[in-house]
């Protein structure tokens, strides 16, 4: 299996750990995150390989905003760990039957990290515990939170009670595209403080 490695500094390493200069031919390779990778690693990657920003209309804007943030300490107390996972849904109703596959980015709350670490940082456990919505949190509060690739959550016939967690692989394209999709939602505050 051909892989491409992302380093915490945002460099892409191809075969024999050689630095990649043109990322487009390797978009379909399986992505491996080096320990210590965060969203800032991807920010650096987008700056280093600007052609990747062209994969989504929302990326240049996100890169511009994230680039304005402090160089360290961009995290928030609600999220201890970010997980980029994948969901595969088999839907039978309403007809016709179909399969949907999509990526999502969510966070693991600090109180659940001990449980996750007790399992050796296992990717299926990370996927199961990732239930903190991060779309409302500005990029400047997420950049330095550790990021891992999760597992594939397979939902059978739309029944969330019958979920199967499977190990999976993510291509570089999937990850860039999935992150861009999540970044397109940023903005807005979490909840109206006035209430009703």
């Amino acid at each position: 299996m051909e892989t491409v490695v992302v380093t915490p500094e945002g460099t892409l390493l191809g075969g024999a750990c050689l630095q990649v200069h043109t990322p487009l031919p390797i978009l379909g390779r399986t992505l491996v995150l080096q320990p210590g990778c965060t969203l800032r690693s991807f920010l650096r990657m987008f700056v280093h390989y600007p052609i990747l920003q062209e994969l989504s209309e929302f990326l240049p804007d996100w890169v511009a905003e994230a680039s304005q943030s402090p160089e360290q300490g961009c995290s928030c107390p609600e999220v201890a760990q970010l997980v980029l996972g994948k969901t595969n849904e088999l839907l039978g109703f309403p007809p016709p039957p179909r399969v949907e596959q999509f990526l999502w980015l969510r966070g693991i709350a600090p109180e659940h990290t001990a449980q996750w670490q007790a399992q050796g940082g296992e990717e299926r456990m990370a996927t199961a515990l990732a239930n903190v919505e991060v779309r409302f949190i500005p990029a400047t509060l997420l950049l330095d939170i550790p990021l891992v690739l999760g597992a594939l959550k397979h939902t059978v016939l739309g029944n969330v009670n019958h979920e199967l967690m499977c190990t999976s692989r993510f291509t570089l394209f999937e990850v860039v595209d999935g992150l861009a999709w999540e970044f397109s939602f940023r903005g807005g505050t979490q909840q109206c403080s006035l209430g009703v």
Binding site: F136, G188, T189, Q190, Q191, C192, L194, V196
Partner: peptide
Amino acid sequence: NRPCTTCWRM
């Protein structure tokens, strides 16, 4: 679609 941050009159 997402939490409304202010009330209509505001």
